[in-house]
Design a protein around this nucleic acid. Structure first.
Lengths: 124, 124
DNA sequence: CGGAATCCCTAGGGATACTG
DNA sequence: CAGTATCCCTAGGGATTCCG
């Protein structure tokens, strides 16, 4: 559990995590873990995301194999995004992360206040 | 474990994770989990990080309470960074994440190749 | 040694308009 | 509906220089 060295962080790993843990990906994955979604459905359910950013996020996640894009031959076209089996394996790591954030947010906020106070004093 | 809804991702949580899971933070945390480090020690042990980026990363982590900065009154000054108790609680989530990356990297690479191949064909 | 300050530069985000 | 295309603009990274 707490081995001495733990795991190395090499460039490919960090690049992968950067692509999957970026600003909007967590929200998208969370949403698609619950149910498949249309593009505008996702857009509405994720506050403040722009169409451009959402498109880029979806492409990146699709390229990395964690979500799937399915075009339905209707008029007008409908597109359905869904999580893949690989994407589902991300659920646990992400949940662990979110649980950490939820649990320790108060401690972080206290730390921030202390830090900012010390900064102010340093200026005086 | 796999509750239906899992956890929400609100703005404060995402902001916190952004600050802690960014490009260089994982490497810094990993290093400081093993032992306290001087500034240039960290710099040498993290390939390709610049002094500016490292400074910014350390300040951010310090502000969020996961690392500590200690100035030793020597000549010339020495500065020692160490992980805090709060920072140590990050170890498990981060390890889970790195384990995921290590385990699924091959699948991700296959997905990328498939995606890129389909893209090429689409152009033709 | 451990930064801060400066300059430069580009990847990426927001807004808007257009399309199959 | 689900994007693509375009313009604009600024936050942030790299390189370099200077300081206590």
């Amino acid at each position: 559990m707490d081995t001495d060295d733990g795991l190395r962080i090499d460039a490919p790993h960090r690049e992968l995590l950067d692509q999957i843990l970026d600003k909007w990906s967590l929200s998208v994955l969370n949403e698609l873990c619950e149910r498949p979604c249309r593009f505008n459905e996702l857009r509405r359910s994720i506050p403040r995301v722009t169409q451009k950013s959402l498109t880029a996020t979806l492409r990146r996640l699709e390229r990395n194999g964690v979500i799937e894009r399915e075009v339905l031959a209707t008029r007008p076209v409908a597109v359905r995004y869904r999580i893949t089996p690989l994407g589902k394996t991300l659920r646990h790591p992400v949940d662990v992360l979110l649980a950490w954030a939820a649990q320790h947010m108060p401690a972080v906020e206290r730390a921030r206040e202390g830090f900012d106070t010390r900064e102010e004093e340093a200026v005086l």
